[in-house]
Simulated assay, not measured.
Amino acid sequence: MSVLRNIKSLAPLLDRVLVQRIKPEAKTASGIFLPESSVKEQNEAKVLAVGPGAFDKDGKRLPMGVTSGDKVLIPQFGGSPIKVGEEEYTLFRDSEILAKINE
């Protein structure tokens, strides 16, 4: 099995969405550092790559709900984890993405 050296070489298929969780802030706006135990894992992620979409029963491609660069809300559990070096990523189906965050 070959080791994935660069996440940019990974192209999701069908309705898969490649995301990376946004790391929670370890310090407050005023500069106070928070203990690691009080920093909860975020359910926010950035979309890095999106597949072309799944097919419907008539063979037409279904549009994806998110695009690369979107900020999204993902489930706490699930998805397929991928590790490249020290970085962690997750593949979800488009239908598993909970919401798109508009800023």
Rank of each mutant, 00 (worst) to 15 (best):
L62D: 01
L48Q: 02
G78D: 01
G69P: 04
A54T: 11
A54M: 06
G51V: 08
K71I: 15
Q76C: 00
G78R: 04
K57M: 15
K46P: 03
A54E: 10
G65M: 04
V66R: 12
V50A: 10
L73D: 02
T67N: 07
A54I: 03
I74A: 05
N43R: 15
D58R: 15
A49G: 04
P63T: 07
T67I: 12
V66C: 14
L62S: 01
D58G: 11
K71Q: 13
F55Y: 13
S68T: 14
D56S: 14
G65D: 09
G79V: 06
P63W: 02
G53M: 05
E44Q: 15
V66Q: 14
D56F: 12
D56G: 09
P63E: 01
V72L: 04
R61H: 01
K46R: 15
V66F: 12
A54G: 10
L73M: 09
L62V: 10
D56W: 11
I74S: 04
G59V: 02
R61A: 07
K71S: 14
M64Q: 06
M64W: 03
G53E: 06
D58V: 00
P75R: 05
R61Q: 13
T67E: 12
P52N: 11
L73F: 09
R61Y: 02
K46Y: 15
S68V: 01
A54R: 11
L73G: 03
G69A: 10
